[in-house]
């Protein structure tokens, strides 16, 4: 009898069950979560210029980004995990965009769509950010002025490949949570019982 085979006398049923569940959970963590993430990207359309029109065309029936699971445009950063920055961003708008990015739930990805969002485009002036990647971590740059919907879809598919390949571990596990901390407005006195308990 092969020693690697299942031996009911040395291994309890609980162990077997635990091992199988663990492998299942691990498989789901490594493959399944990313599979679910990549097929349900919920974009936040930060559309400030003509790129936004192409973004709408991408979402509409002809190009139908629903085929890639990214049709649920969410205007709340809390509900989205893909920031599509479509169009030029004025410098006065940059803190708003940064706040939106900070408010998005982990894991999150950023597409810089079009020439203006990526480099400032023709708007090389005092008022326009010369590429949002100066202030934000950008994953994918979609070229074009504006990009055709096929190009944007290719960008979304590139995000899907990124998700598939490495994904992003949640920030809590990296030890770096969201730094938006609500300070208590009043002093909290520690109850005496917990003080003694801690000591």
């Amino acid at each position: 009898m092969d020693k690697h085979q299942y031996d009911p006398h040395t291994m309890s049923n609980d162990d077997v069950l635990t091992t199988r569940l663990d492998s299942l959970v691990n498989f789901f963590r490594e493959k399944g979560v990313n599979w679910a993430r990549r097929n349900s990207l919920w974009p936040l359309p930060f559309a400030t210029a003509c790129c936004g029109i192409e973004l709408m065309a991408t979402g509409a029936s002809r190009y139908d980004v629903a085929r890639f699971g990214a049709e649920v445009m969410r205007f709340s950063p809390r509900q989205s995990d893909l920031l599509i920055c479509a169009g030029r961003v004025a410098i006065k708008m940059m803190p708003v965009l940064q706040r939106i990015y900070l408010q998005m739930a982990e894991p999150k990805w950023v597409i810089s769509m079009g020439a203006c969002a990526s480099t400032g485009g023709v708007f090389d002036t005092y008022a326009v950010v010369q590429g949002v990647d100066q202030f934000l971590p950008v994953d994918i740059y979609v070229p074009g002025c504006p990009p055709r919907p096929e190009t944007l879809i290719e960008g979304i598919m590139a995000i899907q490949r990124i998700v598939d390949r490495d994904g992003i571990t949640p920030s809590s596990r990296r030890g770096k949570g969201l730094r938006l901390v609500a300070e208590p407005m009043y002093q909290i006195d520690t109850p005496p019982s917990s003080k003694t308990g801690a000591a």
Binding site: I91, M94, P95, Q98, Y101, L102, K108, Q134, F135, L136, P137, I168, S171, R174, K176, L178, R179
Partner: peptide, 10 residues
Amino acid sequence: NYPVLNRDDA
């Protein structure tokens, strides 16, 4: 003049 966000910040 704005802070630069990176992946570890957020």
